[in-house]
């Protein structure tokens, strides 16, 4: 539990540092907004239409492949920690797991899901 206490305190300090600086900046800096200054920046051109741009499906696909890898890795970490105490057979089971993961990668690759066009 002590570890988490330290981390909690550290997180608090980590948030405190930038927050303090920004607060000082807010206090010291001038506050003179005007319509031109606060206008959305677009290289001097009047901004047009909505900010909400529809994104390409690629972003979603990459996030999906990433998610699969992330979950697989969640399984692999305990295996890696236990590795030293495992018999060869159990090590190979982990390798099989990695091979299946590679198969997923190869499938996505061959299907062209990893192309950024």
């Amino acid at each position: 539990m002590n570890n988490w206490l330290y981390i909690a305190i550290f997180l608090f300090v980590a948030v405190l540092f930038p927050t303090a600086l920004v607060v000082v900046g807010l206090l010291l800096g001038p506050k003179r907004p005007n319509p031109i200054k606060t206008d959305t920046y677009e290289c001097g051109v009047q901004t047009w239409g909505e900010t909400w741009v529809q994104f390409k499906i690629q972003y979603y696909l990459f996030a999906l492949v990433f998610l699969v890898f992330d979950i697989e890795v969640a399984f692999l970490y305990p295996w890696a920690v236990a590795y030293k105490a495992l018999p060869l057979f159990a090590v190979l089971e982990g390798v099989l797991f990695i091979v299946l993961l590679t198969a997923a990668l190869i499938y996505a690759w061959r299907k062209g899901a990893l192309e950024w066009s």
Binding site: L21, G25, G29
Partner: peptide, 27 residues
């Protein structure tokens, strides 16, 4: 930079706009 104005752009989501850099730095 500490004496520069912090500009809040039009239609910005103010709380999130402030939280974003703090979150990144704190992380």
């Amino acid at each position: 930079i500490i004496t520069k104005e912090i500009i809040f752009p039009d239609k910005a989501d103010k709380p999130l706009y402030v939280i974003a850099p703090l979150l990144m730095d704190a992380a």
